[in-house]
């Protein structure tokens, strides 16, 4: 199915929870409201018309101009061939976009739908600060429950990929200052 058809199908099933879609791009994507996302994800995986069994990637984006953070889920549906010897076939692919406000970025986890989401969501929390609720590998931090960090140390402050991230001046006594005596540039 083309991305347009998948969007039509989702709109028929979930109505108001499907928000916005972009097709005139190299990366066609459908917007889904955060509160309905696990339900939509389960439908995408289990329904015979969609059958998205492979979560390829989760990309977290900081859209400073819209004041939102956004997680993009790239999905593939692959299936075994009808006859024995041929390779697996690609049925179709789609990208799902879940946008949340910057000041309260919470998206329900889909790690129980696709196990691949587990580490991707931990990475998205670590680097972008999107809190995935009910993540199987969660811990309690100063601001409540969140997925465990995966690349940065557990006591790291801030989320490096945010556009307004400030580089730390030091970490456990290790100064983050260049030889010229200047601090690192703030991007």
């Amino acid at each position: 199915m083309a991305p347009e058809e998948i969007t039509e199908l989702l709109k028929k099933e979930f109505g108001e929870f499907i928000v916005g879609s972009k097709f005139d791009t190299a990366h066609p994507r459908v917007g889904v409201r955060a509160d309905a996302w696990p339900e939509v994800a389960r439908f995408l995986r289990d329904d015979s018309r969609t059958g998205f069994n492979m979560l390829r990637c989760v990309t977290a984006l900081d859209l400073l101009e819209d004041d939102t953070l956004c997680a993009e889920y790239d999905l593939h549906a692959i299936r075994a061939p009808k006859s024995g010897a041929a390779p697996y076939e690609l049925i179709h692919g789609i990208c799902i976009e879940v946008s949340v406000p910057r000041n309260n970025p919470r998206i329900p986890s889909v790690a129980d739908v696709w196990r691949a989401a587990d580490w991707h969501e931990r990475e998205a929390y670590d680097l972008m600060g999107i809190i995935f609720e009910n993540h199987p590998d969660s811990m309690i931090g100063p601001n409540g429950k969140h997925p465990r960090r995966i690349l940065c140390p557990d006591d790291w402050v801030g989320h490096p990929l945010r556009k307004d991230y400030l580089f730390p001046m030091e970490y456990h006594g290790i100064p983050a200052v260049t030889e010229m005596g200047q601090t690192r540039p703030v991007h």
């Binding site: 190299a26 990366h27 390829r56 990637c57 990309t59 984006l61 900081d62 790239d74 990208c95």
Partner: peptide, 30 residues
């Protein structure tokens, strides 16, 4: 605009997600 593109690496599918903004420097590289 943005794109997500994967190729077959020796270890599996390596994908890059790139979001441009009309200038030389991209907005996001994943």
């Amino acid at each position: 605009d943005e794109i997500y593109h994967e190729i077959e690496n020796p270890r599996g599918q390596l994908g890059f997600m790139i979001r441009g903004n009309g200038s030389v420097i991209p907005d996001r590289v994943k």
